[in-house]
Design a protein around this nucleic acid. Structure first.
Lengths: 215, 215
DNA sequence: CGGGATCCCTTAGGATACTG
DNA sequence: CAGTATCCTAAGGGATCCCG
């Protein structure tokens, strides 16, 4: 029932016993964005079999990383306070893995929750502090997000309904080369790797200085 | 050959593709302490099947996290610079997992490398900075370590050969309750959970304020 | 002896179908 | 919608063997 153990009395082995099973950390990643229903989690992890999702949800509850939200009419999963402590770890791990992303393959998807966490990984609060507050409406593949930067604060939400923003753009996996600095913003626009939907193209420069992870 | 992928274009999913396979992060943990030979790794991970160790070493090399040390006569594995970037992540994950350690079961071992990383996870440089430089010779189960604290610097080595130290002690899984603050140092000594081998018992207080992780 | 490769068996994971 | 049930495959576990 509990994750298979490694026979070691150590913090790291305990950690991977708790969240090291396949798919587990991706479930945690999405729940760190916000509470999610079973179906929302399944939608955010298109390739997870439903029996595995069900098993992981049980295991993560059993070890106190997630829970069903109390006094909610529908069943909603959320991280516990202990699970919330994984947030900096997951962000750092995401920053590390982001650098190893290569070209996207056709079958790879970008989900709103994964992109939200990637943006939080790449966020440069020091840089943002020096820039005027800015709102971006961005589409990355399927994921539409509203990104609000104000001082050193970042807020990313699913871009639904009528919202106001300073700059709107659409892109795909080219986001990786933008954030890594491999592709210059205006060059990306010229090459149609980024489509500007609204606002001054120069605001894409502000975006890439706000979200940056060097390779 | 390459780790099974999750079909997502995201930093976190890429990270767990690289180091999320069973045993992989424990191998990285031990290599973060220092270069290790195949046999040393096997000794530090008593329950790993040799075919799995061999497979993981190949995979981790293929993705650039570890490598065979160049111009070394014997075969020695070490982390690459990219693998070294995992160090803060592994330490943070170790701190998180450490809090979830319960009572040690009999079959659980404490290895020198795992204990070294746990100590590094629990190290409080701010506190250490206010304290005089101190050397500890410590035995945790099988693992004998020499722990040198000097200002905000920590150095942990395997305690072999003649060395000088201020305080020597031996303990076992009680180390967890000491570091979590659940068990007071002098109480631990009185209850024979910690055996003082050399030096003033009060130095155990200094040790637990230098290495601390609240639950 | 270090550094693996091979064998066989067990268990977890994946695909799909189905149900309260 | 939120999961079970079933079947099948692939990966892990354990022992042994091999080779330079």
């Amino acid at each position: 029932m509990a994750a298979r153990d490694y026979g070691q009395y150590s913090g790291i082995s305990r950690a991977v016993e708790l969240i090291g099973e396949r798919w587990a950390l991706l479930i945690v990643r999405d729940l760190l964005v916000g509470p999610r229903r079973y179906g929302e989690l399944a939608a955010g992890l298109p390739r997870i079999p439903s029996n595995i999702l069900a098993a992981r949800l049980k295991e993560l509850q059993a070890v106190g990383v997630i829970r069903r939200a109390p006094r909610s009419r529908v069943i909603v999963y959320e991280v516990t306070p202990y699970g919330r402590e994984l947030e900096p770890v997951v962000l750092a791990l995401g920053a590390w893995g982001f650098k190893a992303l290569g070209e996207a393959r056709d079958e790879q998807v970008i989900t709103p929750d994964s992109m939200t966490m990637d943006l939080r990984s790449a966020f440069q609060p020091r840089v943002a502090l020096e820039l005027p507050a800015t709102s971006y409406a961005a589409r990355f593949g399927d994921a539409e997000l509203l990104i609000r930067v104000d001082g050193s604060a970042l807020d990313v939400t699913r871009g639904e309904g009528p919202v106001d923003f300073d700059f709107a753009f659409a892109t795909g996996p080219a986001i990786h080369r933008l954030i890594s600095g491999e592709l210059a913003p205006q060059q990306a626009i010229a090459a149609h790797a980024v489509e500007v939907l609204h606002g001054r193209p120069a605001l894409l420069d502000r975006f890439v200085s706000t979200f940056h992870l060097a390779a």
